[in-house]
Design a protein around this nucleic acid. Structure first.
Length: 402
DNA sequence: AATAAGTCCAACCGCAATTCT
DNA sequence: GAGAATTGCGGTTGGACTTAT
C-alpha cells in the first residue's frame, strides 16, 4: 500500500509520539502557529510528516481539548446527533466542545454501539432491532393529491427491557408511551427561564434526584460562565426560575439547560432570553408533545420532519401525525433537496406525520383531536448553504381551537 | 502464573475536496 | 484550466492494557 506522498521523501518516524516530540511540536506551534503543516516537522525539528503533526496537535496537544471520560449528557448528544448526521464525526464533534472527531468515533465504535444493541436499537439505523405484535402498531392513512392512500405503520419499540436498565436512560428511551405528559418543561418569557416539574403520578422519575442545571455560555468579553444548580425535592411544587438579573446582554448568549434524573439527562436544550427561543437538543424532540400547550415561538430541529423520528412521536402518543402541506411548502420543509426558505404551512389537529414523498401532497387525515389546537410551522430562511443540516426551523404553537 | 481473548484508543491510511502554482 | 500540494475526513489497524480461562 502506498504511503502518503509526504512520507515518501524521507525516512520518517511512525507510531506513538514520545514526550520529547510532543514538547517540540507544542513549543513550535505555541510560538509560531502551525502555518503550513507540511513545513511544521522540519521547522520544529521532528522526523514526522506534516499530516502526523497535524493529527497529533488536533487530537492530543491542542490546549482547548477536554480530557477525561465522556459524560452521560455528551453520550446522549452523540447518539442524537448520530441519528441525524450518521458517521459525520467531525460534524458531531463540532457540537461537543473540546472533543475530537477521533475520540467520538472511538467512543461510538467501542462503547455506544454496544449499548444501543443491548437496548434493542440498531446503531446504524437507530431503528429498533425487534418489533412487537401487529396489534400494537399504529396505522393511519394520509390522502395524497391523486387520492392515493398511503398507509404508514409505525414502529413499535421494544422498550420494556431497555427501561429496566440504567443505560436506557442515557438513550433517552421513554419508559412508557405516556412519558410525554411527565416531561419537565422549560418556558422563557424574556426575563425568566422557568423549569416546571413534570407531572409524575407514578413516581417513576424519583423527584428526589431530579436536578436542573443552567449554564450561561461565556461571552466574548467574559470568560466566566454562570452556572446554577437546583435540586427538586419531592415536596417542591413551585417551578424553578432563573432570575432576570442573569439575563445575558447579547443575543448570542444562551443558557444551556439540562434536567437530569438519576444522573442521566432527561431534557437538554438551549434557551435564549433575548428572543425567547428554546432549542431542544434532542432530535427525538418532546416538543410536539406540547402541541397546543406552548404559546412561545420555539426552535425545533428540522430532523423532526424525518419520518423515522415521527414514528417515535406516534409511539409516544398512540396517534398519527400528518402534515398538511402544499407542494411548495413540502418542498420548503426539506422534502426536496433544497433547504427550507421562507414559508408557512399549517399542521392541524392532534396528529400528524409523515413523509411527503416526491412532493406529493399529504392532506389532513382524520387525526385525533386530542390537543384541539392549531400548530403553525414556520419554516424560516436558513441561508443558501445546503451543507448544514442543523439549522433550526421555528415552530410556533398557537392557542387556537381547530 | 501463563496465555488467550477482548477492549480501547492513538495513529495510520486512502480518498476527496480545496487551495496553490 | 491543469496538475501538484495541502488539508480534512472517515475507515481501519496495531499495540498496550485488561479480563477471562
Amino acid at each position: 500500500m502506498a504511503r502518503h506522498s509526504c512520507c515518501h521523501k524521507q525516512k520518517l518516524r511512525k507510531g506513538l509520539w514520545s514526550p520529547e516530540e510532543d514538547e517540540k511540536l507544542l513549543n513550535y506551534i505555541t510560538k509560531f502557529g502551525h502555518g503550513c503543516w507540511s513545513s511544521v516537522p522540519k521547522l520544529a525539528g521532528l522526523q514526522r510528516c506534516g499530516k502526523s503533526c497535524r493529527l497529533r496537535w488536533m487530537n492530543y496537544l491542542r490546549p482547548d481539548l477536554k480530557r477525561g471520560a465522556f459524560s452521560q449528557q455528551e453520550e446522549s448528544l452523540i447518539i442524537e446527533l448520530h441519528a441525524v448526521l450518521g458517521n459525520r464525526w467531525s460534524q458531531i464533534a463540532a457540537h461537543l466542545p473540546g472533543r475530537t472527531d477521533n475520540e467520538i468515533k472511538n467512543l461510538w465504535n467501542s462503547c455506544i454501539k454496544k449499548k444501543l444493541r443491548q437496548n434493542g436499537i440498531d446503531p446504524n439505523t437507530h431503528k429498533p432491532l425487534s418489533k412487537v405484535e401487529n396489534n400494537d402498531e399504529i396505522k393511519f392513512h394520509a390522502v395524497g393529491e391523486s387520492n392515493d392512500v398511503v398507509s404508514v405503520a409505525s414502529t413499535k419499540l421494544n422498550l420494556s427491557q431497555a427501561s429496566s436498565t440504567t443505560s436506557s436512560q442515557s438513550l433517552r428511551v421513554p419508559p412508557s408511551p405516556d412519558l410525554s405528559f411527565r416531561r419537565p418543561s422549560i418556558a422563557c418569557d424574556g426575563s425568566f427561564i422557568t423549569c416546571f416539574q413534570p407531572n409524575d403520578p407514578e413516581g417513576e422519575l424519583c423527584f428526589q434526584q431530579l436536578r436542573c442545571s443552567t449554564t450561561m455560555s461565556p461571552s466574548a468579553s467574559s470568560n466566566t460562565a454562570l452556572h446554577h444548580n437546583w435540586n427538586w425535592s419531592s415536596s417542591d411544587i413551585s417551578p424553578i426560575q432563573v432570575h432576570s438579573a442573569l439575563k445575558p446582554n447579547r443575543p448570542s448568549d444562551n443558557y444551556y439547560c439540562n434536567i437530569d434524573c438519576n444522573n442521566s439527562t432527561y431534557w437538554s436544550g438551549t434557551v435564549n432570553l433575548q428572543n425567547d427561543h428554546i432549542f431542544e437538543n434532542s432530535p427525538i424532540s418532546w416538543l410536539l408533545a406540547d402541541c397546543g400547550r406552548f404559546d412561545k415561538e420555539t426552535e425545533v430541529h428540522p430532523s423532526l420532519c424525518d419520518p423515522e423520528l415521527m414514528k417515535w412521536f406516534e409511539y409516544l402518543h398512540h396517534t398519527p401525525f400528518v402534515f398538511n402541506l402544499s407542494p411548495s411548502e413540502a418542498s420548503q420543509l426539506g422534502h426536496s433537496d433544497k433547504k427550507p426558505s421562507a414559508g408557512t404551512c399549517s399542521v392541524t389537529g392532534g396528529g400528524l406525520i409523515s413523509s411527503c414523498p416526491n412532493d406529493q401532497i399529504l392532506q389532513a387525515s382524520p387525526g385525533s383531536d386530542m390537543y384541539g389546537k392549531t400548530l403553525q410551522v414556520i419554516a424560516v430562511s436558513s441561508g443558501q448553504n445546503s451543507s448544514s443540516s442543523l439549522d433550526p426551523m421555528k415552530i410556533k404553537f398557537q392557542d387556537k381551537k381547530v
